[in-house]
Every structure is written in C-alpha cells, then in structure tokens.
Simulated assay, not measured.
Amino acid sequence: MTTPFPLLRLPHLVLMPILEQMDFMERIALSIYSKRARKFLKLLKMKCEHINLRLEDNRVEMKVFFDNSEELKVDMYTDRYKIDLKYGNDHIFWWSGTLSPMDYVLPIMDVTHCNSIKKLTIPKLSTHNPKYDALIPLLTKLPKIDEVIVEDTTSWSFSPESPLLKVLRIIFPVTSAVTISGHIRKPNYLRETFKGNFDAVSVSFYLNIDERFSLNDWKFTNAKTLKLAGPAFEVENLNRYFKLWMKKKCNPRLENLIVRTRESVTKDLLLKGLNAVQVPIRTDRSLGVLGCIKQYHSDEKITWEFDITRADGKIATISISNHGLVCFYVSPFRQNQSSFIRAFSSFSSFYNSCIEHFK
C-alpha cells in the first residue's frame, strides 16, 4: 500500500518548480481535479489563443488552440462519462468516472486564462430524442460566447416544442454574434433571434420558390451587423426598410446590413422615394469592409453607391453589386452638410458677439 504524497502542502518555492516539470496533460488533469492546484497552475501562464465548443447529441467537443500551433482536443460523452483527449500527436483515452462536461470545460478555460468561447457550434439537430439536458449545467455557466453557429436547421428546430430553443435562450444573453443556416419555413420562429442585442446576426435561408420573408419578419432586428442571405427577400421590402430607417423607426443600433434577394436589383426600384444621392465608388469600400462578411462571387464588385440621410442628419451608404447584393452601412462620423453649416453659423455668430462685447 502506497501513501499519497501531499504535493499541494509543499512550500510555494518547492511546489512551483515541480509543477513546471510536469508535462502539459498532467497539468490539465491536476487543474480539473483540484481547485487549489489550479490556483498555482495559473501562475505558469498556460495561455491559449481561443477555445471552440461543438455540441452533439451525446458529446461535447472542445478544442483549445495555442500560439505554438498545438491543439488540445477533448471529447466529453454525456451518456458514458468517457473522456477522449488528444494533444498534438499524443492520443490519450481517459475514463473519468462521474464528472460532467462542466467539470472539464470550465477548469480548462480557467487554467488557460480563456474568458470566452470563440465559437459554440450546434450541428444539425436530430428529431429523435436530442440529449441536451446533460449540457444545461455547462451552458448556464459559460461566461461569454463570441459566436453561436447553428448549422443546417429545419423549421422544427426553432418551433416551440424543439429543445433547441431552450438551449438558445440560455446562451443568447452571453452571446455576441449568431449565425444560422438552414430550411426555415416559418419566419416568425426566428423573431426571438432577431430581437436580441447582438453585435452581428447572419441568417441564410433555403426556401421554396413560392416562399418569402416579409418585412414584418425582420424589420425589428436589433443587431449592429445584419446579414440576410437567400432568395427570400424582395427589393420592395428593402426600400420600405430604408424609409423606416430614415424616419428613425427601426433599429437605431444598425451599422451594416447585407441582403441578397431572389430578383435582380434595379436602383430605381430600390431607391424609390429615398432622395438618394449618387456618390463616387470609393476603392477602399469593398465588401470585406463589413467585418467577417465575405464576397459571394470571386468577380463580385460594387457598381453603384448612393447616400441617404436620416431625419437627424445621419448618413448611410447603399451599395449595389453586379450580382445583386445590396450593402447598407451607416457612416459613424459623417453628418448632413447643411446641418453642419447651420451649426457652424451658430457658433460663428456666438463667437462674433463675444468679440463685440469685449470691444
């Protein structure tokens, strides 16, 4: 019978060199099973670049990326309590007993100084008894998620009886961006997503030829950047949306909007009643200026640009590409020239009156 060695009772000056000599997987294991050890291991500054999570029916896949191009992969099975680890070229099977995914994800985030999950991916949802209940304790403890990606969804995925909605309602309050792609046949199922205070929302729809998304389905969006891809949007609805924006009756947070419609975009129909002013196409205004939004075609380019002015003097630019992509972005510092002249005139009058007073 061997006597356990009281490692954590050693003096700090003795303990730290021992921890430094441990290999990476020994440190990870120690950080999971001991909160006290984790405090010391954090002093070693095992920082990662970012962490991604992927939720399957009965598995959580965790990938930890380091700046030395190494990757720690942890597969946690919720139905068998089996942990599968791989770091670099080392593949280890780890049978953990009764620990839940939360008991692995959060300690690893802590010891690698990671404050948020970069991507949380939810793959195609199975309609046959999806097992999300075991993941609820983990999801409620995640501090921050940069982007939630929902892949290949169906209308049932967002229906009131779907377990996915319960998961999304848990993670949306700590999420910055949402990306959804799939076959959504009932637009009202996505209204809860559109109303969120996200930095970015990207939705790709695959609908039948006779299905469309009306303006009422997305005019109340609250995201700073909104991307709507798919042949479900009409030019008339875009025109109506821009008119609402000019009257300050929709999304005051909006900075970028990208929409691809099913029909060819004509500037006369798109700009009807907007009092738009054509501006020269700036070479630095590419489709990539909208953050992570990428071009759809290699030969896509902007063919027209027009400025419209909101009631408060805020200016936005509408761009039309040669493939029918409509980009709308609000200029953060530009204002109406006449408003600027009025403000300058008022200031000038005040300045002149002060000069006369002191004379």
Rank of each mutant, 00 (worst) to 15 (best):
residue 196 G to I: 08
residue 197 N to V: 09
residue 198 F to Q: 06
residue 199 D to Y: 10
residue 201 V to E: 00
residue 203 V to T: 02
residue 204 S to T: 14
residue 204 S to L: 06
residue 206 Y to N: 05
residue 206 Y to P: 00
residue 209 I to E: 10
residue 210 D to H: 15
residue 213 F to H: 06
residue 215 L to M: 03
residue 216 N to W: 13
residue 218 W to S: 01
residue 218 W to Q: 09
residue 219 K to F: 09
residue 220 F to S: 11
residue 221 T to A: 03
residue 221 T to H: 03
residue 223 A to K: 02
residue 225 T to E: 04
residue 225 T to W: 00
residue 230 G to E: 01
residue 234 E to Q: 15
residue 234 E to K: 08
residue 235 V to R: 05
residue 236 E to K: 05
residue 237 N to P: 04
residue 238 L to P: 02
residue 240 R to L: 00
residue 244 L to F: 13
residue 244 L to V: 14
residue 245 W to D: 03
residue 247 K to A: 12
residue 252 P to T: 04
residue 254 L to D: 03
residue 257 L to G: 02
residue 260 R to F: 10
residue 261 T to A: 02
residue 263 E to F: 07
residue 264 S to P: 09
residue 269 L to A: 08
residue 271 L to T: 02
residue 272 K to A: 12
residue 273 G to M: 09
residue 273 G to E: 13
residue 274 L to G: 02
residue 274 L to K: 01
residue 275 N to W: 11
residue 276 A to D: 03
residue 277 V to H: 04
residue 277 V to L: 13
residue 278 Q to P: 12
residue 282 R to T: 11
residue 283 T to P: 03
residue 283 T to R: 11
residue 285 R to G: 05
residue 286 S to W: 06
residue 287 L to I: 09
residue 288 G to N: 11
residue 288 G to C: 08
residue 288 G to I: 10
residue 289 V to M: 15
residue 290 L to A: 05
residue 291 G to K: 10
residue 292 C to V: 12
residue 292 C to W: 14
residue 294 K to R: 14
residue 294 K to I: 07
residue 295 Q to K: 13
residue 296 Y to L: 14
residue 296 Y to H: 14
residue 297 H to Q: 12
residue 297 H to K: 06
residue 298 S to I: 13
residue 298 S to G: 10
residue 299 D to T: 14
residue 301 K to T: 12
residue 302 I to A: 07
residue 304 W to P: 02
residue 307 D to E: 10
residue 307 D to W: 04
